[in-house]
Amino acid sequence: MSNERILDVKGLKTQFRIDKQKVAKAVDGIDFHINKGETLAIVGESGSGKSITALSIMQLIPSPPGKIVEGSIELDGVDLLGLSEKQMTATRGNDVAMIFQEPMTSLNPVFTIGTQVSEPLRKHKKLGKKEAKKQTIELLKLVGFPRAEDIFHEYPHQLSGGMRQRAMIAMALSCAPKLIIADEPTTALDVTIQAQILDLMLDMKKKTGSSILMITHDLGVVAETADRVAVMYAGQIVETSTVKELFVKPKHPYTVGLLNSMPKIDQDSERLESIPGMVPPAHNFPQGCRFAPRCKHAMDKCTEAVPDLIEDGLNHKVRCVLYDGSGKGVTHV
């Protein structure tokens, strides 16, 4: 893994206007980067802003009401936010591709799989019908369709969810993008299929050398696929580190809570732990640390100001007053 940054996001803020007074700060100033060939996972609960982050990179935020108000998104040195819509259209599917959560509804019901998977090839690589078909069938074989020629002519409704997600992966891979964004790619699938799809993605990453941004709420997926991880809460990144480190030494109380709410094979507990309360709505964040109202370590200092993301250990950053030098840290797990 080189240290060349394929994606570099700085100070990204994406907001949605709800009405004249209210603005939802769905993504509120996040920085992260992905190195070449690396997989970064963004984890968080529903409503933490992780999908909006993905859509911001693709610039597929429904606008209005959504808008990227600040920041920069550099893909291989090019600031995507500086591109015209036409240039961005040429970038999507070509340099950066996306796999969505819902394979059942993410394919157009009236076109064949072949038509849909070959579309990026025909658009970006300017391939003719025949050549596109040949390459598409190769792609379909690559993602594990044994009878790729038949699948080429079949419609989405003839395929199961897992097969459709394979078709989506084939589509995303078609132009060998520098970055693949996978937004909860296994959430809608059966558990047995989930493992297959994750294996397929890792396999494809190895073959193509693409980097992956994995959006998920499932720490199991993180452990299985990612090199580094960023934990998002209420539109901000609250902790980032390597996956190994995060599982062994989680620092932020929210991360600790997430890890504790996972079932463990060596513990025979009756109930899983849960984090009380809910993610605050994006138009009404609490003062100071946004996790404070749900945090068992909360103190007066927490509500004064949003804590900075501070370095604590090698490549490990955390946004919590417990680690700003005065505190003592959390005893975890």
Binding site: T89, A90, R92, P120, H124, M168, M171
Partner: peptide
Amino acid sequence: RTARAKGL
């Protein structure tokens, strides 16, 4: 959204 994401 998929169609737009593939750059059409």
